[in-house]
Design a binder for these strands. Structure first.
Length: 164
DNA sequence: GCCAACGTTGGC
DNA sequence: GCCAACGTTGGC
């Protein structure tokens, strides 16, 4: 069995769903719907477990970077948007008895005291191996090593819970 | 808004 | 099963 908790990074465009919106959601929780990439799907379906911790990354914004920490509170289940013809994530090829896309439920834990921008991550040699700074890396769900996770928290500082 | 990088699709 | 065309991501 893999060590727990495991650590992840999840990308969201703040114009679509920001960390502040996650905090404002009922129970500070949402389902991570709309992912349509098989590698990311596999991680959500098979690998992410309750209690795993997530760096919440804001993409397509200025500057991109990590805004807060979230945790997995519900494990992989079919993404309801794939079956909804009115949803932009509708997938006509997915069948109810053989769903193609999965989600996890995530809950806000604490914002970082200071936003850790992509430039900050790049400037920190300890984080040179993080997937998010690799050229051409587009995956919206990425595994993160525990040392990298702790370093990002050290850089940003925690407003709330102690996660050490 | 541009465009490089990458994933997916579909004709063959 | 190859690969060109196309769509998407996401930094800049």
């Amino acid at each position: 069995m893999a060590r727990r908790p495991a650590y992840w990074l999840m990308k969201s465009e703040p114009d679509v769903f920001s960390y502040a919106q996650l905090e404002a959601a009922p129970k500070q929780t949402t389902l991570w719907d709309g992912v349509r990439n098989y590698q990311a799907r596999n991680m959500m379906r098979d690998e992410m477990k309750v209690g795993d911790l997530i760096l919440y990354y804001h993409s397509n914004t200025k500057p991109p970077g990590i805004a807060g920490v979230a945790r997995v509170v519900g494990e992989g289940y079919p993404d309801p948007t794939q079956f909804d013809p009115n949803d932009s994530h509708f997938d006509p090829k997915s069948q109810e008895d053989n769903p193609r896309w999965f989600v996890v439920d995530i809950q806000a834990v604490t914002p970082l005291k200071e936003y850790v921008s992509l430039d900050d991550i790049r400037a920190n040699g300890k984080l040179a191996d993080m997937a998010v700074v690799q050229r051409g890396q587009r995956l919206s769900v990425q595994p993160v090593g525990s040392a990298h996770f702790r370093e990002v928290l050290r850089m940003g500082g925690l407003k709330g819970a102690d996660l050490s």
